[in-house]
Simulated scan of single mutants.
Amino acid sequence: MRWLGWIALAASLAAAAVASGIHEQSVRSRLLRADPDLVASDPQLVAYAMDMGALTYSGACSGCHGPALTGDRRSGVPDLTDSEWLYGTGRLSEIERIVLYGIRSGYSKGWNLASMPAFARAKPYASYHVDPLKPGEVDDVTTFVLSLQNAASPSDAVERGKTVFLKNGLCFDCHGADARGDPAIGAPDLTDAVWLYGNGSAESIHAAIAHGMAGSCPGNIDSLSFAEIRAVALYVHSKRSGGRAHDP
């Protein structure tokens, strides 16, 4: 009669597998239906999604942002673990939107608004007319931006640079009159110590003003499942250190 025991065990294992599959399907369904900004407060959804998110990040994101999510300032790839959010405020829904549609990726729902003009060129900006700056004006704006970091700078050059920043340079149009940027369009805060390109030196600031910057991030709506997209957004959200980021 031992075979009856084996049959009972097999039936029990099969039932457990079916129950596990039904449970996983139920959790996956809840993950997809949930308000993205509430997912992080649900321990069951977090536990389900984190492994998938880590695996998806490794395959789709680590090539640029690195395995530790710390980015690469040489090519303008942002650090995803610091306190600064270039686009948005760090909400999971905003991260998910970037994973879905990208930045300057060609998708109409992506962030495609702001690019840094190359002010040393005869035609600094492709989208609309912006006057170029003279070499001395580029130098003065560089000095002004350095002064925002409390760097010792010649006061006359700072004042000239501030005038260019607020008037003919049109820098204020994206970065704001207070130079604190605008996360709604991806314009960085120039008053903090977080730098997307370079290390905040005079050389790297001058290069950004003279030659422009316009990094991109691909959209993944056509290459990842919606479960993978939400999971990787949750994974990135879990690695942030705070700052502008906030939970509901």
Rank of each mutant, 00 (worst) to 15 (best):
G21M: 05
V46G: 08
A19F: 02
V18F: 07
N150R: 15
E94A: 03
V158G: 04
S225E: 04
G242H: 04
D192W: 00
T89N: 12
Q44E: 00
G106R: 14
H65E: 06
H211N: 13
E24T: 03
H129C: 06
G215W: 08
Y48S: 01
A40Q: 06
S216M: 10
S147Y: 05
L31S: 00
G181N: 07
V130E: 10
A152E: 15
R180A: 00
R160D: 05
G110D: 08
V77H: 09
G161H: 04
V232E: 10
H65N: 07
L100Q: 14
A11C: 10
Y57R: 03
H175F: 14
W85F: 15
Y101C: 08
L86A: 07
R230I: 07
G212K: 07
T89C: 10
W85P: 13
D139E: 13
A214L: 15
A120R: 10
C61P: 03
P67S: 12
L32M: 05
R74S: 15
P135D: 08
D247V: 13
S105K: 11
I205K: 01
M52L: 14
S29I: 01
E84S: 09
N220R: 11
Y235Q: 05
S216G: 04
A122M: 06
G198P: 01
D37V: 00
H175I: 13
G59P: 15
L100C: 07
T143P: 00
K123I: 11
L133K: 08
Y235I: 08
S201G: 14
R160P: 06
G53N: 03
T56C: 09
G106Y: 12
A49K: 01
S204W: 04
G59W: 15
C174P: 15
P36D: 01
D72E: 09
L170E: 13
A15N: 06
H246D: 00
G59R: 11
F172P: 01
W6Y: 15
V46L: 02
P188N: 09
A231K: 01
A184K: 13
G186P: 03
A34W: 09
L170I: 10
W195H: 15
L4N: 03
H237W: 15
C64R: 12
D156K: 02
P218V: 14
Q44A: 07
D42M: 01
A208N: 08
R104W: 13
A40N: 02
R104E: 15
F119Y: 12
V158T: 02
D35S: 02
C61T: 10
F226N: 10
T81F: 05
C174S: 10
V46W: 03
A120K: 08
T143W: 00
S225D: 03
I185A: 04
R74W: 14
N150K: 13
A114L: 09
R240N: 12
V18H: 09
A207L: 07
Y197E: 04
E159M: 11
M116N: 05
I7Y: 02
A19W: 01
S201I: 08
A10F: 01
I221R: 11
A8R: 07
D72V: 09
L80S: 04
T70P: 14
D139I: 02
R121A: 13
I209F: 01
D222R: 11
V158H: 03
A126P: 08
T191A: 11
V46T: 09
S105N: 09
A152K: 11
L170Y: 08
S20W: 09
A152F: 06
S58A: 09
A202K: 13
G200I: 09
W85Q: 14
W6H: 14
D139S: 02
P124D: 10
H206F: 10
C174M: 04
R2C: 05
